[in-house]
Computed example of a mutant assay.
Amino acid sequence: MSQLLTANNLRFLFDGLKLTLYISFVAILLSTIFGTILAVIRNQKHGPLRFIAGTYIEIVRNIPNLLWIYVIFLIFQMKSTPAGIVSFTVFTTAALAEIIRGGLNGVDKGQKEAARSQGFSNFQIIWYVVLPQAIRNVLPAIVSQFVTVIKDTSFLYSVIALQELFGKSYILMGKYAQTGQVFTIYGLVALMYFTINFCISQFSRWLSKSWAKGY
Results as ranks from 00 to 15, higher is better:
Arg136Asp: 13
Tyr70Thr: 09
Arg11Ile: 09
Gln3Glu: 15
Arg205Tyr: 11
Lys151Pro: 03
Val129Met: 01
Met173Tyr: 09
Arg61Met: 12
Asn65Trp: 05
Arg50Thr: 13
Tyr186Ser: 06
Thr81Ile: 10
Asn62Pro: 09
Trp127Lys: 02
Met192His: 04
Leu10Arg: 00
Tyr70Arg: 00
Gln44Arg: 14
Arg205Val: 12
Leu13Thr: 02
Ile41Pro: 12
Pro82Asn: 06
Val147Tyr: 06
Asn137Phe: 10
Leu74Met: 09
Ala94Met: 07
Tyr128Leu: 08
Ser201Ile: 08
Ala161Thr: 10
Asp15Gly: 09
Phe198Trp: 14
Gly214Tyr: 15
Gly102Ile: 09
Glu113Cys: 07
Leu4Arg: 09
Thr153Glu: 11
Leu4Val: 15
Leu207Ile: 09
Phe146Trp: 15
Phe14Tyr: 11
Leu29Lys: 00
Asp15Tyr: 01
Tyr176Arg: 02
Lys45Val: 06
Gly110Trp: 00
Gln145Asp: 10
Ser204Gly: 13
Ser144Asp: 08
Leu191Val: 10
Lys175Gly: 10
Asp15Val: 03
Val71Pro: 11
Leu156Ala: 11
Ile200Gly: 04
Leu66Gln: 01
Asn8Cys: 04
Asn9Trp: 14
Ala134Val: 10
Ile85Ala: 03
Leu29Met: 04
Val159Lys: 00
Phe166Glu: 01
Asn62Met: 05
His46Met: 08
Ser154Asn: 02
